[in-house]
């Protein structure tokens, strides 16, 4: 499993771990019922504190991506793909809404906005 941590992008490390594991679960790189590394092993391998990896796993459990089997470890949970997709769409809508608000505030028209979106989409 590959996890890439940036110490300088301002995103808390536990969030970076949570997000990257989520992506791996959604993309099926991590399969249902797969055992994840223990909190301590992950901390050691990522060179971060134990509390950080603990927070990351707790967040994943809370959001239903991972289940904690006491005294055994953390396993990838069965996820509801539609629900996940819906969640992502909501997130996109929220961010686009912000973009539209800023555009309207500054009299930027729809065409420019569309162009920007096209460029960004192609670049990735």
């Amino acid at each position: 499993m590959e996890i890439i941590i940036s110490n300088s992008n301002g995103v808390p490390i536990y969030e970076q771990i949570t997000e990257q594991i989520k992506v791996k679960i959604v993309s099926n790189e991590l399969k249902e019922n797969e055992l994840l590394p223990s909190i301590r092993t992950l901390a050691k391998d990522l060179r971060c504190s134990v509390i950080t990896t603990k927070n990351a796993y707790e967040e994943l459990v809370k959001e239903g991506y991972v289940k904690n089997v006491p005294s055994k470890g953390f396993y990838v949970a069965k996820i509801n793909k539609e629900l996940v997709l819906e969640e992502q769409l909501n997130k996109i809508e929220e961010l686009m809404d912000q973009a539209v608000v800023i555009a309207k505030m500054n009299n930027i028209n729809k065409k420019t906005l569309n162009e920007m979106l096209n460029i960004l989409y192609e670049e990735k």
Binding site: P12, Y14, A43, R47, C48, S49, I51
Partner: peptide
Amino acid sequence: EHIADYIIFINNGEIVLSKTTN
């Protein structure tokens, strides 16, 4: 910063800060 879970900051013989590193 990398590995500590908690930070205790001591100044002039007194603890001035005690928090998780995160």
